[in-house]
Computed example of a mutant assay.
Amino acid sequence: MDDPWGISGPDFVVLYIALLGAVLLVRAVVSGVVGSRALRADTGRPVPQPTVYQLAFLAGGPDRAVDAAIAALVDRGQLRVNSYKQVSQAGARPSEPLEQAVYDMAQLSTTTTLRAYGRQSAAMRALEEGLDQHGLLASAAAKRQARTIGLLLQLAVLALGLVRLLNGISLGRPVGILVFLVLVAAVLAIVAAVRRSKTGPRQPSAAGNRVLGQARSAASGPVPAGMLAG
């Protein structure tokens, strides 16, 4: 009896396992290369002096920016923290957008709640967009494109397995191992789809790290003599 597609069942299983492994390897390599290029991106053009909250975002993402806003508001007496570590309003509403978002939500709220709200706020999106416009964050589009390529490859392998499986069933061939491998391919495709929909936290680009390094150097530098006078 002729083998379907000119390849025996056992040989196809070996080939399919190799394809599954190859796609995983390609996904890892493409993701690594794209991510590395995005992190190294630096146009070298001068950028405006970032705000303290933009620097906090570069240093630790949205949560660090929210923490910085909470600390500033508490320091100025516009928020207070009770013995249960709940944050509430205590003074006038601030004018800075991120501080406003944190202040408005601070009604006996925990810092965890404020962080979650701050991450989704319009002020945080505007802050992130500002960093993006100046090339201080690694490209999210590049990461998404790399994951799209990985998803398409994973779907192609899944489709190949399904076609071979249906062909084997129609010919009455044993397909137990192939059923398992197709299920594995389906799970990998689902994982790839989920990863594509979630780009994860934004990382500073080379330009962002350069700006952050300059800010840290300035903060740790010697105190000007004029500041000691008085």
Rank of each mutant, 00 (worst) to 15 (best):
Pro4Glu: 02
Ile7Gln: 15
Ser8Ile: 00
Gly9Phe: 14
Asp11Ala: 07
Tyr16Cys: 00
Tyr16Gln: 04
Leu19Cys: 10
Gly21Arg: 05
Ala22Arg: 10
Val29Cys: 03
Val34Ile: 00
Ala38Arg: 00
Arg40Ala: 03
Arg40Val: 12
Arg40Gly: 06
Tyr53His: 07
Ala56Gln: 13
Leu58Glu: 13
Gly60Glu: 13
Gly61Phe: 10
Arg64Val: 01
Arg64Leu: 14
Ala65Lys: 08
Ala65Phe: 06
Ala69Trp: 07
Ala69Lys: 05
Ala71Gly: 15
Ala72Phe: 04
Ala72Glu: 05
Leu79Ile: 13
Asn82Lys: 10
Lys85Cys: 05
Gln86Ala: 11
Val87Cys: 07
Arg93Thr: 00
Pro94Asn: 10
Pro94Phe: 08
Ser95Val: 07
Glu96Ala: 08
Gln100Met: 10
Gln100Ile: 08
Val102Asp: 08
Thr111Lys: 08
Gly118Glu: 01
Ala123Trp: 00
Met124Asn: 11
Arg125Trp: 08
Gly130Arg: 10
Leu131Tyr: 10
Asp132Arg: 11
His134Gln: 14
Leu137Lys: 10
Ala140Cys: 03
Ala142Arg: 09
Arg144Trp: 13
Ile149Asp: 05
Leu151Ala: 07
Leu152Asn: 12
Leu155Val: 03
Arg164Asp: 12
Gly168Phe: 15
Leu171Gln: 08
Arg173Met: 11
Pro174Gln: 08
Gly176Lys: 05
Leu178Tyr: 02
Leu181Cys: 12
Leu181Lys: 09
Leu183Trp: 15
Val184Asn: 02
Ala185Glu: 07
Leu188Gln: 07
Arg196Asp: 04
Pro201Arg: 14
Arg202Ser: 02
Arg210Pro: 01
Val211Gln: 14
Leu212Phe: 09
Leu212Cys: 14
Leu212Met: 07
Ala215Asp: 08
Ala215Leu: 04
Arg216Gly: 02
Ala225Asp: 07
Ala225Ser: 03
Ala229Lys: 07
Ala229Arg: 01
Gly230Pro: 02
